[in-house]
Design a protein around this nucleic acid. Sequence first.
DNA 1: CTGAAAGCGCTTACAG
DNA 2: CTGAAAGCGCTTACAG
Lengths: 331, 331
Amino acid sequence: MSVRKVAELAGVAPMTVSRVINTPTKVRPETRERVLKAIERLGYVPDLVASSLSSKRSRIVSALVPTLGNPMFSQVIQGLADTLRAADYHLIIGDTRYSAKIESALVLEMLGRRPEAIVLTGPVREERIRKALLRAGITVVQIWDLQPGHIVDCAVGFDNYAAAVAMMRHLLGRGYRRLGFMAIVGDERARERQVAFREALAQHKLKPTFEALPSRFDPAYDPTDEFIRQIEQHPETDAVFCASDMLAHLAIFACQRKGWAVPGRIALAGFGDLPLSAKIVPSLTSIRINQYEIGRRAAEVIVQRAGGLRPRTLVQDLGYEIVERESTAPP
Amino acid sequence: MSVRKVAELAGVAPMTVSRVINTPTKVRPETRERVLKAIERLGYVPDLVASSLSSKRSRIVSALVPTLGNPMFSQVIQGLADTLRAADYHLIIGDTRYSAKIESALVLEMLGRRPEAIVLTGPVREERIRKALLRAGITVVQIWDLQPGHIVDCAVGFDNYAAAVAMMRHLLGRGYRRLGFMAIVGDERARERQVAFREALAQHKLKPTFEALPSRFDPAYDPTDEFIRQIEQHPETDAVFCASDMLAHLAIFACQRKGWAVPGRIALAGFGDLPLSAKIVPSLTSIRINQYEIGRRAAEVIVQRAGGLRPRTLVQDLGYEIVERESTAPP
DNA sequence: CTGAAAGCGCTTACAG
DNA sequence: CTGAAAGCGCTTACAG
């Protein structure tokens, strides 16, 4: 099945078949009809691989996220997928498992598909990769965290550090003073939140009661146990800033098991504002990021660029919002 | 940047560069070294589009799931992505939003990329699409639900109906008799569970107290409110079978808000056994499906097929497991 | 409005 | 072990 077969059946040149598919208005209606009928009869599906090669437009976008298992990122992917599909692009995805090494290997692999754009979560970490990206001359959209110094091309996201600072302001404003921090090790974005956590405390001449970073690669990995252990070892803790809502949910359940009132005994705050966070009991104070919108905007930038437009702003800060809920009511 | 440039720099023919990349052992070590150096120096990344076209091997797999937002499916995708990457395949994804129409359009689009295999969630619903798939002559792996009559090619999943029947056996065995059912409308897989729910009750000469199917397209969509409304309208209900763990989690929170003891007042059971279900208070009885494994096996089938092997079994039933937890303790 | 020629960047299938 | 020729299935850039 190929343009040639269709052309033969319709009694036209292959070029005309190509026109019917790509620029139908440039073909006389009668001719178009004949070609369309031939396409239909043969069940012809144009080969986009060949099309990509000769037109030098792959209509492919690659996106790399740390993990697909995290709803934060799957929402971003969903936003990307929906918007790109509407513009006739296909999306190739890869997950880096939070590893810079895997990320680099994936970028190189992806580049082989000649994508028109590549979406990366966070800054490029290897100089070699940055060079390869530049040499490829494609649109690079860095999503999620905005770190101005490291942006290769475009960026859509929010200020992770500022968001964490705002949450700390909220917690301190509520009167909490003995704060713990919890994140999953390997999550570099969480590291930034941790820095904000420390600095905010330091400004108030306070010290963390604990900073726990269970590793998902640790065979004994269980954030729930880790949380309980930390609270028992540091019973003065009156609030815990969790680097993700999922951790905060687990902490709430741990507290329920232990009979620790939230927020009476311990206040809890998360990050990401998952849908469940508004519904959980107690409802969870969190930092809302519009994940879907990040994906949508990233796709938008890509489509605009492909259309020859220079997007007005190369860096789009979509902001964040502290959502104050029951879990951090004043003590 | 092309094989030609590399070939010139290395002083060999393009064909030799191709060999160094694809079958390096077939090139004399000294020649290979020279070519490798040229590749390195130029930062050459082979064009997989051109490679696909001439070799007729795209090394692409397309996967369609109803939504990426549901952790059930993102786990499947993760299993696919990991396994396919290890075999040097790229994964193009699409989400059908539970729509047969979108699914059909996506399949046709995907076919244009000449994937070596396509992964579909559930059976193909349009005859036209089944034909297109057959004509494409590629591996089609139907995942998730196993419906023998509708399988185009291979299938990896579990028996949705049997799983729901097993859960009903559990609930009835625990002594619950006044059962309600809840699912999100549009989820066809949930429909099967609903049928099992009804039939199991009928066998015991029982009737549902309610069957609620909130629609995510309904502006007033709120499964929590819907759950509360149903329980208040049908206060005799002593247990609710939720077609997904997420719904069951929301139901648990709703009960906490209302002061309805789970399982004292109402027992709850879910489907999918999300990680949170073991941790939530009360822990949730659910049906465990190994989502990641479904993805992994689907990829395995694809890789085996590509290697010329006929997989031993075309239909792999990975089974399910009723995980009995606190939420359905005897009344 | 339509078509013949050339070429996109690889690899297949020979040939030596 | 290496290479020259042909071709994968489209589209670009002309030409008429």
